[in-house]
Amino acid sequence: GSPGIQSFLPPGWEMRIAPNGRPFFIDHNTKTTTWEDPRLK
């Protein structure tokens, strides 16, 4: 199987799917959430 997208996120980050189907990202380091992919910064 191919590695999940989770493995490509920075340490402490998690990806979830919102009720509307959009992915969002949780930064457990700062306890914040964002719509922006942290890998694109």
Rank of each mutant, 00 (worst) to 15 (best):
G1E: 11
S2Y: 11
S2K: 12
P3R: 01
G4R: 01
G4V: 12
G4W: 05
I5G: 15
I5K: 12
I5E: 13
I5V: 14
I5L: 14
I5C: 14
I5N: 13
Q6P: 12
S7L: 13
S7W: 10
S7I: 10
S7T: 14
F8M: 14
F8Q: 15
F8T: 15
L9V: 02
L9Q: 01
L9H: 01
P10M: 04
P10L: 09
P10V: 04
P10W: 05
P11M: 12
P11I: 08
P11S: 11
P11H: 11
P11Y: 10
G12V: 01
G12A: 03
W13G: 00
W13T: 00
E14R: 01
E14I: 05
E14D: 06
M15A: 07
M15S: 04
M15R: 05
M15W: 04
M15I: 11
M15P: 00
M15N: 01
R16G: 10
R16N: 07
R16F: 11
R16Q: 12
R16H: 11
R16S: 09
R16D: 07
R16Y: 09
I17M: 11
I17R: 13
A18S: 11
A18Y: 06
A18Q: 07
P19Q: 10
P19R: 13
N20T: 08
N20E: 04
N20L: 02
N20V: 02
N20A: 02
N20K: 02
N20G: 10
G21Q: 04
G21E: 03
G21T: 04
G21P: 04
R22K: 13
R22T: 10
R22A: 10
R22H: 08
R22E: 08
R22G: 02
R22I: 11
P23T: 08
F24K: 03
F24V: 08
F25N: 00
F25L: 01
I26G: 00
I26V: 09
D27E: 04
D27G: 00
D27V: 01
H28S: 07
H28W: 12
H28K: 06
H28E: 04
H28D: 04
N29R: 06
N29L: 08
N29Q: 08
N29V: 09
N29S: 08
N29M: 08
N29K: 10
T30D: 05
T30E: 06
T30P: 00
T30I: 02
K31Q: 13
K31N: 14
K31T: 08
K31A: 14
T32R: 11
T32N: 07
T32I: 11
T33F: 12
T33Y: 14
T33R: 11
T33S: 13
T34Y: 05
T34F: 04
T34E: 02
W35Q: 04
W35E: 05
W35Y: 10
W35S: 05
E36L: 09
E36P: 00
E36G: 04
E36C: 06
E36A: 08
D37C: 08
D37A: 07
D37R: 06
D37S: 04
P38K: 01
P38S: 01
P38Y: 00
R39K: 04
R39N: 11
R39H: 06
R39A: 09
R39I: 06
L40D: 15
L40R: 06
L40M: 10
L40G: 15
L40H: 14
L40Q: 14
L40F: 13
L40A: 14
K41L: 15
K41I: 15
